[in-house]
Amino acid sequence: MTSLLSIRNVTAGYGYGPDIVHDFSLSLNESEVKCIIGPNGAGKSTLLKAVAGILKPRSGDIFFEGKNLSGKEAYQIMRLGICFLPQERAIFPNLTVAENLRMCAYSIKDKALAASRIKAAIGMFPVLGQRLKQIAGTMSGGQQQQLVYARAFTIKPKIILIDEPSLGLAPSLVEQTFSHIKQIASSGIAVLLVEQNAIKGLQTSGYGVVMDLGKLVFEKPANEVLQDQSLRDLYLGKALKK
């Protein structure tokens, strides 16, 4: 059986700069949750950008449901069913909450379906329903996070790519964010997560993927990575030694 997403020998980098991701391969099956961890500059975010189509890989191929994604624009990849939540600006801060939700559903052609999905998302995050007319950027951090994750339930993608969901968030928001991610995973959407907070990331995931200097170091079930002391010292760093 071919996997849902298959990244094959991808090399990528920015502009005229050096390769950030080297000959990287990884696959993701339906409903699977994998967390990519590794030091800063390992190329984790770059890899997600390449999958989402924001960055064109220099070589290698990415297959989704057997289709080669090379040459496709980011919006086309998104419409196929790969949703990317970047580190920042996953919402439109100067649009109202209602307008943000409409934009979340922009790719759904059937407008009745779009409306019912938006309604369902509001059902899951009632606070958004109370603030439909508010400018999204003026909401609290936690409310903005809910708006970000409402997108997953509005468009119901096959895969969601999440880049550093906990970056810059207050500890209480980190908990909230990971509960949203678990919610998404349990609804059957495959998740490819990049996370600095390795423990949190691995606890949420089925598999841990360690990446360093643009290369795959290894891939193991997440609980094995969490329990292996030598791996913890090597790749999970200080976060675990408190």
């Binding site: 924001i54 980011a74 970047p86 100067n94 934009m103």
Partner: peptide, 25 residues
Amino acid sequence: SEFGIAIRATSQNRTSAELVGVNVK
């Protein structure tokens, strides 16, 4: 209008707009 909101979304952030499925070009 849906397209009008897409125009405003694009003017805020092209990449974000592309990521919700807007054909930015």
